[in-house]
């Protein structure tokens, strides 16, 4: 039910409410959390940024779920990238050694291949995801949303008993 509500909220905010930048910001920040392991210092920092900045929380949470799945699929790739950065580039060795022996930096677990590989990937993808999502929200609100709502598949799902039931449950409090 949580995921259903999350998806509904996400579709809702695509249509109205917060600005495209807020939605895209939440989505892009959520992608960082989803791609890289959360229980690290940088994970906490990203959560902090999401909570402080006025970005869309539903978009962030939805993005976290989607990108966590992507991270699981691409884990071997992140591992190889992390190993390459940590072990194969001699020029970076001094930086890693200094960070490893500095306060707090080891709490980021940067010396783990998957943590570093996925975090670097997330940082590289951050801007394209942000810009892409922003553009998508604008287009969705202008034209795409109307077209989708007119699609037969959408209407079938919309009229389905599960969605009707969900709506009844959702609106129960407001009717009362």
């Amino acid at each position: 039910m949580f995921w259903l509500k999350l998806v509904t909220n996400f579709i809702k905010i695509l249509r109205e409410g917060q600005t495209p930048a807020q939605v895209a910001g939440g989505f892009a920040l959520g992608s960082i959390l989803g791609l890289s392991p959360m229980f690290t210092l940088q994970g906490i920092l990203v959560w902090f940024v999401i909570l402080v900045l006025d970005v869309n929380l539903s978009a962030a949470t939805f993005s976290l779920g989607v990108f966590a799945l992507i991270a699981y699929i691409f884990d071997p790739l992140f591992h190889r990238l992390g190993y390459f950065l940590l072990a194969n580039i001699e020029g970076l060795r001094a930086l890693w050694t200094a960070l490893y022996n500095a306060p707090l930096a080891p709490l980021t677990r940067f010396n783990n291949t998957v943590v570093l590989g996925s975090f670097v990937s997330a940082l590289i993808l951050f801007t394209p995801i942000y810009l892409g999502m922003k553009k998508f929200v604008i287009v969705y609100r202008a034209t795409l949303g109307v077209r989708i709502r007119k699609m037969k598949v959408y209407q079938i799902i919309d009229r389905s008993s599960l969605v009707q039931w969900y709506r009844r449950v959702r609106d129960l409090g407001s009717v009362l």
Partner: peptide, 12 residues
């Protein structure tokens, strides 16, 4: 294993 990674140590 997936999502576990490998730790590389940098001693000075």
């Amino acid at each position: 294993k997936r999502l576990k990674g490998q730790n590389i140590y940098f001693h000075a």
